[in-house]
Amino acid sequence: MTTATMEHRLGSVTALPVGEGRAYPVGDEMVAVFRLRNGELRAVSAVCPHAGGPIADGLIDAEVVMCPLHQHIFELATGCSKTGQPPLKVYPVRVDNDELVVGLPA
């Protein structure tokens, strides 16, 4: 089940404040990237499957993001919803030379 991944560079990681998320258009997708308090990064799809809420605007902790519109909760690592919604997509994300790099299926 391996599909080819294409990496995209999203600019400097310093543009992403700790504890917050930002949305990035990548190809045809919108990706929400979060910087956790311990410095780790998480990337998930930016549109809430519940009613299209902006996931990047959500409150996070080390495990989950909470959509700002109706407070549905999703695991950042797996995308799975803890409140019975369909899942978010998750993407690999890393820092390379101070730049955010996210991988999307090619």
Partner: peptide, 16 residues
């Protein structure tokens, strides 16, 4: 106060 404070998080997809 922080970078991108007012940057859109709006998805490109059309919403309600």
């Amino acid at each position: 106060v922080v970078p991108g404070q007012f940057r859109t998080a709006l998805p490109l997809r059309s919403l309600p």
